[in-house]
Computed example of a mutant assay.
Amino acid sequence: MSEEQVKRLCEIAPKYGLTLESQGLVITKINGQPTQLDTAKYMPDQFVDLLAQIIATNMKADLWQWQ
């Protein structure tokens, strides 16, 4: 991914229930949780798929903890 794509992704992420913070090409926070995801290692569609997997994992955890 390019730095411009990372910036755009951070801008549009809230529309899909995510907050992302970045430094250059590295995503440093997802929904306030620290991380170090180097987006340069991904094609844009691959990184979006990774984010979708993170959302799915969080939803599953919430479902199983619900009572």
Results as ranks from 00 to 15, higher is better:
2 S>K: 03
2 S>E: 06
2 S>Q: 04
3 E>F: 01
3 E>P: 00
4 E>A: 12
5 Q>K: 10
6 V>Y: 01
7 K>S: 14
9 L>H: 02
9 L>E: 03
9 L>N: 06
10 C>I: 07
10 C>P: 05
11 E>V: 11
11 E>I: 14
12 I>C: 06
12 I>H: 10
13 A>F: 04
13 A>L: 07
14 P>W: 03
14 P>G: 11
15 K>H: 11
15 K>W: 06
16 Y>K: 08
17 G>H: 11
17 G>C: 11
17 G>Q: 12
19 T>V: 15
20 L>T: 04
20 L>W: 08
21 E>A: 12
21 E>S: 13
21 E>I: 07
22 S>A: 15
22 S>R: 15
23 Q>C: 14
24 G>P: 09
25 L>K: 14
25 L>F: 06
25 L>W: 04
26 V>D: 03
26 V>T: 13
27 I>N: 05
27 I>M: 07
27 I>D: 06
27 I>R: 06
28 T>E: 11
28 T>I: 11
30 I>A: 03
30 I>T: 04
31 N>Q: 07
31 N>L: 02
31 N>H: 01
31 N>K: 03
32 G>F: 01
33 Q>W: 01
33 Q>L: 05
34 P>I: 02
34 P>D: 09
35 T>W: 00
35 T>R: 09
36 Q>T: 03
36 Q>A: 14
36 Q>I: 00
38 D>T: 05
38 D>I: 03
38 D>K: 07
39 T>A: 12
40 A>C: 01
41 K>I: 11
41 K>V: 11
42 Y>A: 07
42 Y>L: 03
43 M>T: 15
43 M>G: 03
45 D>G: 07
45 D>Y: 13
46 Q>G: 15
47 F>G: 11
47 F>C: 07
47 F>K: 07
47 F>Q: 09
48 V>F: 08
49 D>P: 06
50 L>E: 15
53 Q>E: 14
53 Q>D: 14
54 I>C: 04
54 I>W: 10
54 I>G: 04
55 I>P: 05
56 A>R: 13
57 T>H: 09
57 T>S: 13
57 T>G: 06
57 T>D: 13
57 T>A: 15
58 N>G: 11
59 M>K: 15
60 K>Q: 15
60 K>S: 12
61 A>P: 00
61 A>W: 03
62 D>N: 07
62 D>T: 08
62 D>S: 12
62 D>P: 00
62 D>M: 12
63 L>D: 12
63 L>E: 12
64 W>Q: 13
64 W>I: 13
64 W>N: 09
64 W>K: 11
64 W>P: 00
65 Q>N: 10
65 Q>G: 02
66 W>M: 14
66 W>P: 00
67 Q>M: 03
67 Q>W: 04
